[in-house]
Amino acid sequence: MDDLRNILPTGKSNAISARELAAKIGVSDRVLRDIVTEDRVKGIVICSSSAGYYLPANKDEIREFCNFMEKRAKHSFIAIQSALRALGEVEGQQTFIP
C-alpha cells in the first residue's frame, strides 16, 4: 500500500476508528500504526483523535491535532520522568527521542 490518502476520510467528524481502518485494509492494529507512522514520515498529514484517523479538512484541524499530540507527548514525558525517578536516575540525564 502506497499510503492511506485514498482510504482515509477527510475531516475530524468523519474519522474512522483504527480497528475499522485496519479491517478495511486487512492488517492488524499494530501494522496499521506502523503504516500511519511511515506515511507521516513521508510528510503525509494524517490526523487522529479519540474517534480515529482522518485527513485534515483545514488548517484548524491540523492545529487541533498538533495540540492534541503535544499534550499527549507531555503526559508521556511526565510518566517517564516519574518512572526514572523511581529507578534512581538523575533528572536531566534522560534522552528525549522524538
Rank of each mutant, 00 (worst) to 15 (best):
M1N: 13
D3A: 07
L4Y: 02
L4K: 02
L4I: 06
L4M: 06
R5C: 12
R5K: 15
L8P: 02
L8E: 00
P9E: 01
T10A: 06
T10F: 07
K12W: 00
K12R: 10
S13C: 07
S13G: 06
A15T: 03
A15E: 03
A15V: 05
A15W: 02
A18Y: 02
R19E: 12
E20K: 12
L21A: 07
L21F: 09
L21E: 04
A22G: 10
A23Q: 15
I25V: 11
I25E: 04
I25D: 05
G26A: 07
G26L: 04
G26D: 06
V27I: 06
V27G: 00
S28H: 04
S28C: 05
D29S: 12
R30N: 11
V31F: 09
V31A: 13
L32G: 05
L32T: 05
L32I: 09
R33K: 13
R33E: 08
D34G: 09
D34A: 12
I35Y: 07
I35K: 07
T37V: 10
E38G: 11
D39E: 13
R40D: 01
R40M: 07
V41P: 00
V41T: 12
K42W: 03
K42S: 13
G43H: 04
G43W: 05
I44G: 00
I44R: 02
V45N: 11
V45I: 15
I46F: 05
C47A: 14
C47R: 04
S48Q: 14
S49V: 10
Y53A: 10
Y53D: 03
Y53N: 06
Y54I: 07
Y54W: 06
L55K: 01
P56S: 11
A57T: 00
N58R: 09
N58Q: 12
N58M: 11
K59P: 04
D60K: 11
D60I: 07
E61L: 05
I62Y: 00
I62Q: 01
E64V: 01
E64T: 06
E64K: 04
E64G: 01
E64R: 02
F65Q: 02
C66L: 15
C66Y: 09
N67H: 06
F68E: 08
M69Q: 15
M69F: 08
E70N: 12
E70G: 10
K71T: 14
K71F: 14
R72W: 08
R72L: 13
R72K: 15
A73V: 14
K74L: 14
S76P: 05
S76A: 15
S76K: 14
F77K: 15
F77L: 15
F77C: 11
I78D: 11
A79P: 03
I80D: 04
I80S: 09
I80P: 00
Q81P: 00
Q81D: 01
A83L: 13
R85S: 08
A86V: 08
L87Y: 11
G88C: 02
G88N: 05
G88Q: 03
E89V: 13
E89S: 11
E89H: 14
E89K: 07
V90F: 03
E91Y: 13
G92W: 01
G92Q: 00
G92T: 00
Q93C: 07
Q93S: 10
Q94H: 04
Q94K: 00
T95Q: 09
F96E: 08
F96L: 14
F96C: 09
I97S: 14
P98C: 09
